[in-house]
Simulated assay, not measured.
Amino acid sequence: MVGRLIVSFDVSLQDTNDAALEYAATGAADGIGFVFTATVPLVGVDVDDCRDPEAGEPLESALSIIEQLDSFTEVSPSGTGYHVLLEGDLPDGRNRHGSIEMYDQARFFTVTADHVDGTPTSINERQDALEAVHEEFVAEDDTTNDINSTTGDRRDDSGQSQTLELEDEELLEKARSAGNGDKFDRLWRGNTSGYDSQSEADMALCCLLAFWTGGNRLQMDRLFRQSGLIRGKWDDVHHADGSTYGEKTLERAIAATDDFYEPTTPTVETSVDTAAETDTDTAWTLKGGIAEPGSVGGDRVYLEEKNDLLEARIDELEQIVADQRDQIEQLTAERRQLRSIVEQQESDLEGDH
Rank of each mutant, 00 (worst) to 15 (best):
T26C: 08
G27Y: 12
A28D: 13
A28H: 12
A29P: 12
A29C: 07
A29K: 06
A29T: 05
D30S: 08
D30W: 10
G31E: 08
G31R: 11
G31L: 05
I32P: 12
I32Y: 07
I32M: 09
I32C: 07
I32K: 01
G33S: 06
G33P: 00
G33A: 11
F34M: 09
F34K: 06
F34Q: 10
F34T: 11
V35I: 15
V35A: 03
V35N: 03
F36V: 02
T37V: 04
T37K: 05
A38R: 05
A38S: 12
A38C: 12
T39V: 13
T39H: 13
T39C: 09
T39E: 15
T39L: 11
T39M: 07
V40I: 15
V40T: 04
P41Q: 12
G44E: 00
G44D: 05
V45I: 09
V45L: 03
V45T: 05
V45C: 03
D46C: 15
V47D: 01
V47W: 00
D48H: 06
D49P: 00
D49A: 11
D49L: 15
C50T: 05
C50A: 03
R51C: 06
D52T: 05
P53F: 02
E54D: 15
E54T: 04
A55Q: 08
A55C: 06
A55M: 14
G56D: 15
G56A: 14
G56R: 05
E57C: 09
P58F: 01
P58N: 11
L59D: 15
L59S: 07
E60K: 15
E60H: 13
S61Q: 15
S61D: 13
A62C: 09
L63E: 14
I66T: 06
I66F: 02
I66V: 15
I66Q: 00
E67Y: 04
Q68D: 08
Q68R: 09
L69H: 05
L69W: 00
L69E: 00
D70I: 04
D70C: 02
D70N: 07
D70T: 03
S71Q: 07
S71R: 07
T73W: 00
E74H: 02
E74D: 07
E74L: 00
E74T: 02
V75Q: 11
V75N: 04
V75T: 15
V75R: 07
V75I: 15
V75E: 02
P77C: 13
P77D: 14
S78I: 03
S78P: 04
S78E: 01
G79N: 13
G79F: 08
G79W: 05
T80K: 10
T80A: 15
G81E: 08
G81V: 04
Y82L: 04
Y82R: 04
Y82K: 11
H83A: 01
V84W: 00
V84S: 01
L85Q: 08
L85N: 06
L85E: 10
L86V: 01
L86Y: 08
L86K: 01
L86I: 08
G88H: 03
D89S: 14
D89R: 06
L90K: 02
L90I: 07
L90P: 02
P91A: 15
P91F: 10
D92W: 14
D92M: 06
D92L: 12
G93C: 14
G93R: 03
